[in-house]
Design a protein around this nucleic acid. Structure first.
Lengths: 151, 151
DNA sequence: GTATATGACACAATATATTGTATCACATAC
DNA sequence: GTATGTGATACAATATATTGTGTCATATAC
């Protein structure tokens, strides 16, 4: 593994211990060039993907729930089911790739909105109005104004 | 490493590849009991801890900058330098522990505010007023009203 | 103060991971 | 349509990681 200090491409493991009851492995590595040491963690890709909701409760990530929100936002809009599947897939895999076990519903909303914005303005604003409704009414108005000005 | 499917404590590596230009290692593992396969990633702990600012530019995380913000918020308030050091330490290490390479300035602000709120209401609102000034004026007012009602 | 937990470190004996080469499947790009 | 990139898979030869034991330092708990 590449050294995070000097960038040299080889390092060796000097210690390796299971942690989290065996669910992860912590390694101490040493750069073969600059000899600096650093810690790495090996973790399982995804499995327990939890969403932190606004009231701080946790629940498992649910593709269908996200898809339903998207379908509602796209009602009578020229967005294909394929596009929506793609968005859900991309969001899910980008959450998995962070290797985080938890993600806030807000972060998910932001990711979805970023992608939806490129597809359909109206669907984007509908979706945003649900995700940001209580926290950020001004932002919603600002977004609406931006869209009005752009057209 | 423990199997995420059946929970058995031993698995073997069936493939191992460097990714991200050598910064991480992806491994395919197979459980020695149920023989199911899963993917793991080994990543460096922290090092390039970058903050994503509001305008989407990145800059390295800077303890001093955060501390300055806290000091300004706590001017003439009964909050010790020790407490502030503790907050900065806790925020920094909780960012490191996520193993994410990037974090938004907003996320940092939220973490700080959560901790500051427990220490001093006035410092909390001062800090919040800086972190949320453009995005969330309503939230700021709501917070002020909450504090006024609580006292 | 003592007790407890955790991370870093070292050493030695053993077991296992790594790397290149190559194929297949799938999805995206043009 | 073809080209391109990526993840999963297999195999074989080689190199390296893992695990137990034990110490030390630091921080937190009581």
């Amino acid at each position: 593994m590449r050294c995070p200090f000097c960038g040299y491409e080889e390092s060796k493991v000097v210690d390796s211990r299971p942690i989290d009851d065996g669910l992860s492995i912590r390694r101490r590595r040493e750069c073969l060039k600059c000899e600096k040491r650093f810690t790495t963690y090996e973790k399982v890709e995804n499995i327990p993907l939890m969403v932190i909701k606004k009231d701080n409760r946790r629940e498992p990530f649910n593709r269908n729930k996200l898809m339903n929100g998207l379908l509602r936002a796209c009602e009578k809009r020229p967005v294909s089911l394929n596009d929506l599947e793609r968005i859900v897939n991309e969001v899910e895999s980008s959450i998995c790739n962070t290797l985080e076990r938890e993600v806030t519903s807000q972060q998910i909303g932001e990711m979805v909105m970023e992608k939806l914005k490129k597809l359909d303005d109206v669907a984007y604003v509908r979706f945003a109005s649900v995700y940001r409704q209580f926290k950020d009414i001004n932002t919603f108005l600002v977004e609406l104004n931006k869209l009005l000005q752009d057209t």
